[in-house]
């Protein structure tokens, strides 16, 4: 696709810029959640299962420490190898993955652990089995569980933040976004299919959706953009973690000091879009 498409929707430059954001977030060499958890957190111990009969490998939960502070961790996890991609389902969770996250939020509340979430998912898995087992219900209940969490909660979008599946671990007291990550109401392909009835026009959709990460800061959805090493996170995992870790430490300290909880968190998401304040 070259040049403008003659419908006035976006210039070639706008499309290129928005699409670069998407490609950066999806780069196959980009560090995934477990890569960053290993480099940013101490003593990570993975836990397994939703305690209702499933253990979805597209979502990882566990316990860790950061600068001596106890933490609960929840993360979307993509696979690196062919085998792992299948096992992790490309980071797209089934209902069991969202129920696993709910279990983590409940555990964190009970043990008074702050939570850090790592977001990197194309979205919730669009499959028959997921629908049969209540995908929408699982996501809705996870939104509610996040808002009810009594402890400080920090989210980091490290790659793709796709749709309701991403929102299931995003509703934190503070949201960080890596420089080349993005958050979107739908994948650019899905948005293009809906808007243009042509998934191929994903670059136009990305431009129309204004996926540039700076907008998330401007709109108050994210609190901080975390820079990546020159060339992007995929060129330097250690460098990415070295830039991220101090921001996690600082933000978590801040949230713990402020004593955040469900009242403030609900208020944040109730008023988020900054409209209708009359």
């Amino acid at each position: 696709m070259t040049g403008v498409e003659g419908d006035g929707s976006a210039t070639a430059q706008e499309m290129a810029s928005a699409w670069a954001q998407v490609e950066g977030a999806r780069h196959p060499d980009r560090p995934y959640s477990l890569d960053l958890i290993a480099r940013c957190l101490d003593d990570f111990i993975e836990l397994h299962g939703d305690r209702q009969g499933g253990d979805d490998a597209a979502v990882v939960i566990g316990l860790a420490k950061l600068e001596g502070r106890r933490l609960a961790v929840v993360a979307n996890q993509k696979g690196r190898t062919l085998e792992e991609r299948g096992r992790r389902n490309f980071g797209m969770a089934h209902p069991e993955g969202y129920r696993k996250a709910q279990r983590l939020f409940a555990l964190a509340g009970r043990l008074q652990l702050p939570v850090i979430s790592f977001i990197d998912t194309p979205g919730a898995y669009p499959g028959v089995a997921a629908e049969e087992r209540g995908q929408a219900w699982a996501i809705a209940q996870t939104l509610e569980a996040q808002l009810a969490l009594p402890t400080p909660y920090l989210a980091v979008v490290i790659g793709e933040g796709g749709s309701g599946g991403a929102l299931a671990t995003l509703l934190a007291d503070s949201v960080l976004v890596l420089e080349h990550a993005f958050l979107s109401v739908a994948s650019p392909e899905a948005a293009a299919a809906i808007l243009f009835r042509d998934a191929g026009r994903k670059q136009s959709a990305a431009a129309a959706l204004h996926l540039e990460v700076s907008n998330l800061l401007k709109w108050g959805i994210a609190d901080e953009i975390v820079p990546e090493p020159p060339g992007g996170a995929h060129t330097d995992w250690d460098g990415t973690a070295a830039l991220l870790r101090p921001r996690l430490v600082a933000k978590l300290e801040q949230l713990v000091a402020e004593g955040v909880g469900p009242v403030r968190r609900r208020e944040r998401y109730r008023r988020l879009d900054g409209l209708f304040q009359a």
């Binding site: 808002l147 309701g164 979107s184 808007l195 959706l209 968190r265």
Partner: peptide
């Protein structure tokens, strides 16, 4: 579902409505 034409603002309405239900 969420209205595509308002992008990520529409996505955040999921959070807004759940917050209000409390």
């Amino acid at each position: 579902g969420a209205r595509m034409q308002e992008g990520v603002f529409s996505l955040m309405q999921m959070a807004k409505t759940v917050a209000a239900l409390h």
